[in-house]
Design a protein around this nucleic acid. Structure first.
Lengths: 212, 212
DNA sequence: TGTACATCAGTGAACGCGCGTTCACTGATGTAC
DNA sequence: TGTACATCAGTGAACGCGCGTTCACTGATGTAC
């Protein structure tokens, strides 16, 4: 109906944010346009004023979801001595709050498996985003050679992503918390005393990378 | 058409095997009944002589796919000294052949994310199957206390599953092989010299657990 | 400043396609006599 | 052993539903004069 200066942009961002949440929660197959537009307070027909197709939306939502994770990690580790930065990331990642709120969390668990079935362009853009994450985590390992830091970072991300996925798949069972603790211990050297981190990974999203 | 003693059972197994492959390759959303039955050499209508519904099939295919992985790991580590057993599993898991043949490989990368969206019963049966895998891997850690072996096993499985998923998502990029190597090194202490293991994870399936 | 027109974000009915499921039918094999 | 009948795995057309996409339309806002 109405139609002023930056209003379309605002709607666009609102749809993208809702899509990012839904994608992380239900995977890229679990997203429906009618449902998504309802969540954004609109009707389904208007979708095509903002996106060329469903695929177009998924690609864009994927990109911002990955950026949000990188941004979150940057925030969590900022102004902390190196090893503390790593620990902050790991504890915030492998906590029950993150496990139970995939929509507000990291994009990797929901996306990675799907990316493996994508085409070459999809995989290329995925690996660029993943590369940024790796660099950020590698910077937390200051007391080892650069090459080794990179290797440790890749392995740490694999462990975090694998552990949270398995913990979600066994949610409600005793095993679930055990998985989070085991992952945290092997990455930080100690067991988490409380499974919920003080700065949980899944704090309210700010949509930083959406608005640019 | 024809119809003799154990012939129905044979068809049933054929469908299940095809389903297991397709599920691991394309995820549980990627499986279509017409397509599946064609792969099994039948037409779609006959499906319901063997399964109550699509969901029924998916549940059964999931169970045998998980069993196959556990069985494979048992074979790989059998008759090997403990640490060699772990290394055999890790190298076979984190190799390019396994990365490039998800249909013949481990069920976790394709299933785990999906399981996180399932109901309580689904998660319970998942955690039981995962528990069996953990026990098997934990038995490879002989020079540490039992509790620690279990923690290391959980972490190792998380790392393997996370790494192969990320490697698949970045297949075709330089990063992909690097992920496999980083995972293998942090779990075995050394880098794999060749990314293809001698006993690849994805040897021809035998359908052991299907026929029982 | 006020009026007439153009624009276009958003609406909601309708379309078309894929896919899970149903169902009447077939014909080879097993069984009864 | 041979014949008549019952069974039921498998066939393929048809149905129904969900969902992505299209399209004619609306009406508030921006712009021209």
């Amino acid at each position: 109906l109405r139609y002023s200066k930056g209003q379309k942009r605002e709607t666009y961002v609102r749809i993208l944010k809702a899509a990012s949440v839904q994608l992380k929660k239900n995977g890229s197959n679990g997203i429906g346009i009618a449902n998504l537009m309802r969540e954004a307070g609109l009707t389904h027909g208007g979708f095509y004023s903002h996106f060329r197709s469903r695929d177009d939306l998924v690609n864009k939502a994927f990109a911002i979801a990955m950026d949000q994770t990188t941004f979150r990690w940057k925030k969590l580790s900022a102004n902390l001595p190196a090893n503390d930065g790593l620990e902050a990331i790991v504890r915030a990642y492998l906590c029950t709050k993150h496990r139970d709120n995939p929509g507000d969390g990291c994009a990797l668990p929901a996306f990675a498996a799907q990316m493996g079935r994508g085409d070459k362009a999809t995989k290329k853009s995925f690996s660029i985003k993943l590369g940024e994450m790796i660099d950020l985590v590698a910077a937390q390992y200051t007391d080892v050679p650069t090459g080794e830091a990179r290797q440790l970072a890749i392995s740490a991300i694999s462990t975090m992503m694998g552990a949270i996925t398995l913990a979600r798949a066994s949610a409600g069972q005793d095993l679930s918390a055990e998985i989070l603790e085991a992952g945290a211990k092997s990455l930080t050297g100690r067991k988490a005393t409380t499974p919920v981190a003080e700065k949980p990974y899944c704090a309210a999203p700010r949509g930083d990378s959406v608005t640019r």
